[in-house]
Design a binder for these strands. Structure first.
Lengths: 149, 149
DNA sequence: TACCGTTAGTTGGATTTCCAAACCAACCTC
DNA sequence: GAGGTTGGTTTGGAAATCCAACTAACGGTA
């Protein structure tokens, strides 16, 4: 078995796992949509940013639409698939807040009045997802594993 | 303003954003804890895996404990902080399943009986987190932005 | 028309990272 | 004691990244 494990996490990371990709998405969520602004806020070299934007557009995470012709200039917006990555960013941000920062650089207040603390739950029953509450079903031969803990 | 945006997502990615880091964590969650096994399942070069494991241990995401002395051999397990990244992986996996794969390589069955579809909700009220339901509060000067969409 | 500034890249060259294969020490099995 | 296993480290070359400077296409102004 020399091939790596078939896995949607790996597939997802092939799309948004390169350096700066998620930070680009973060900026786009913040409403920052132009090349120079994204470059500055993300801190990415311009050539790398060009590559990332193209990759994300090709993967259907962002779409570029002209905001000016003459000169032709594009802005970048999230697609529906891109918008669905918001949960990943929120979860990641919460983890960073919790484990890596003295006090969070940004706090979101939810409409319910509380400072947002995101939780990942089962959409069906709304319950938290404990490791023991999951049973894995493998759709590919030979990749069962010890636990899911 | 030449500095990039202060942000917990960026901080988090500095810890788990390098190539293979999240896949290593995935393996560890699957119960795969030894160097050779992780290397094979992740598909990472051995020297890179060495670097990643050391980094993750130094960051407090993994801990290495000896499973044999003579010869001294370590295995890698998630710390509490590491375990709290499960939500990130589940959310990422769901996104990959949804947008990148014909049929998911792995399906989790939740204890409620349904095939797991993770949702990111507000821990306080349990409600879904629509973009409009959030108000950003900036704890750092000069980093307000257009929207949170 | 000449000159300046803005925007969105592109280019060239140094640096860093990545990778595959080989190597190694310390065991264990036969 | 020959061969295999485990958990790495070393090596040399390929690829990606970084950074500064450059370009192209405009728009403003004077």
């Amino acid at each position: 078995m020399a091939t790596p494990r078939p896995c949607s996490i790996a597939d997802a990371l092939a799309v948004i796992g390169e350096k700066y990709s998620l930070l680009v998405l973060r900026e786009v969520f913040w409403g920052v949509r132009r090349f120079n602004d994204i470059a500055r806020n993300v801190g990415a070299p311009r050539d790398v940013l060009t590559a990332r934007l193209n990759h994300l557009v090709a993967a259907g995470v962002l779409e570029k639409t002209p905001y000016s012709r003459r000169p032709l200039r594009y802005e970048y917006r999230p697609t529906e698939a891109g918008r669905e990555l918001r949960g990943v960013l929120l979860t990641l941000m919460a983890w960073g807040d919790r484990h890596l920062s003295e006090r969070p650089p940004v706090v979101f207040e939810h409409s319910c009045g509380a400072d947002l603390e995101p939780a990942v739950v089962c959409r069906c029953c709304g319950g938290e997802i404990a490791p023991e509450s999951l049973t894995a079903r493998f759709e590919v031969e030979g990749w069962g594993a010890a636990g899911a803990g």
